[in-house]
């Protein structure tokens, strides 16, 4: 039943990816992910300049209950972490696809985004997981 915006791409590990006009990709966690985690109380985002591989843990989101890794959907260099989440981690719960973005990545040359899921495929994944 989770919201899955049609203009984004997704991963099997519940991140979303938005292509921005400047060539970077904005990344966050899906509505399903924030709902499953519950109230977020701490978010650690990567520093600008860090290089990440596709599939590498690059951020941590912690709810009252547990800590979870966030994985880089594509390889690249971190252009920015969302500074707002340092003091307002609950923004991810309130607006997971907007103000609650986690980081922006500048893709590595030739970085493959082939493994990303379309909104329809991500919706199927959620159905398969029983949401």
């Amino acid at each position: 039943m989770s919201k899955v915006p049609a203009d984004l791409e997704y991963t099997k590990t519940h991140e979303w990816v938005r292509a921005l006009a400047d060539g970077t990709f904005e990344i966050g966690i899906t509505n399903h992910a924030q709902h499953s985690l519950g109230d977020l109380v701490f978010v650690e985002v990567p520093e600008a300049g860090r290089t990440v591989k596709a599939g590498e843990p690059c951020a941590v989101v912690e709810s009252v209950k547990a800590a979870s890794d966030v994985y880089a959907p594509i390889a690249g260099e971190v252009a920015a972490g969302n500074p707002r989440l340092v003091s307002e981690p609950e923004t991810v719960n309130a607006d997971p696809y907007g103000a609650g973005w986690l980081m922006r990545l500048r893709p590595a040359p030739g970085a493959a985004a082939a493994a990303l899921l379309s909104p329809a495929d991500y919706q199927k994944l959620l159905h398969a997981e029983g949401d």
């Binding site: 519950g38 109230d39 109380v41 709810s63 009252v64 209950k65």
Partner: peptide, 9 residues
């Protein structure tokens, strides 16, 4: 039940 709506709430 671990939570109903919000654990913090």
């Amino acid at each position: 039940p671990v939570q109903y709506s919000s654990q913090i709430g």
